[in-house]
Design a protein around this nucleic acid. Structure first.
Lengths: 147, 147
DNA sequence: TGCTAATTGAAAATCATTTTCATTTATTGG
DNA sequence: CCAATAAATGAAAATGATTTTCAATTAGCA
């Protein structure tokens, strides 16, 4: 686990956010779960320890954490989204220009749901994945147009 | 384009569905678009040519098409899902067992939204992608446990 | 400690989606 | 071509998730 509660609180403070008991509780619930959780599920977890925390507050906190890139949001089947802590060291992916070879890294791939589904359908124990996008970078696009 | 209107209508008939003008219109709207479209967007498109078609009918038709695997559903940012024709020849991906080398193919990867975002953020023109999951197949899982 | 802007919870509002139900229609067999 | 009927339709209501509003509370700084 990369981000500790302390570190996250520091980041929140730097952004001008206040550290309230509600936010601590929400943060803790997310940090101590390895799964993607829907807002309602997070709310339920939080309420077990801290009854009275409003679902609205959960939504608001998730929005801030997501904005700061501390948690990642994913949209799965059904209607609702879910969130989990981002694991910075986890993995990253590439966007590669097939003309000039430029490589850009990105980290958020939102493949959790697909992974889970594949795992279920195939009985595979999935350890990781490789994802690469191929295309033309801005410069190479221009050149193609000009010619 | 792999599925023509005619082919799809045949598939629908085989499943016991009636071919109504509304369904034709909805199908046509999806077939002639290359983008992922949200139900509301599809409804709007349909209404340009065939005013009076209900949004409910759009939802119902999408459900059937999705069930039959003719269109693929994806969940993107915001609240809503979007759909586009499935392109069977488009691409497929692999799930690979890193112990015995077994490879399982799958086709639906739901990367459209990520692709669009990356493209926007990086000004890349994205042509394709490669996606591979790595793990252990059912058999190799068992062996690991036994040892 | 007191001030102030940020935060909170409740309720209402919004938005996407689903359900209900009475009416209409595509298809099938005569 | 016509009648029978199961499927499909649209309008309205219901549902469920998410967002907004607003008055009351509170964290964190001076």
């Amino acid at each position: 686990m990369i981000y500790t509660e302390k570190k996250i609180e520091k980041i929140l403070r730097q952004r001008g956010c206040k550290i309230t008991p509600q936010r601590r509780a929400i943060l803790s619930a997310i940090i101590h779960s390895r799964e993607h959780l829907a807002p309602a599920a997070i709310h339920k977890k939080v309420c077990q320890e801290h009854p009275g925390v409003g679902l609205v507050t959960v939504y608001r906190t998730l929005e801030i954490l997501s904005e700061l890139g501390l948690i990642c949001e994913m949209h799965a089947g059904g209607n609702c989204r879910s969130y989990m802590m981002r694991r910075p060291s986890g993995h990253h992916h590439h966007l590669i220009c097939s003309d000039c070879g430029t490589v850009i890294d990105f980290t958020d791939c939102d493949l959790g749901e697909l992974e889970r589904r594949l795992s279920k359908e195939t009985s595979f124990k999935i350890n990781g994945h490789l994802l690469e996008f191929l295309g033309q970078c801005r410069n190479c696009c221009k050149e193609t147009v000009i010619r």
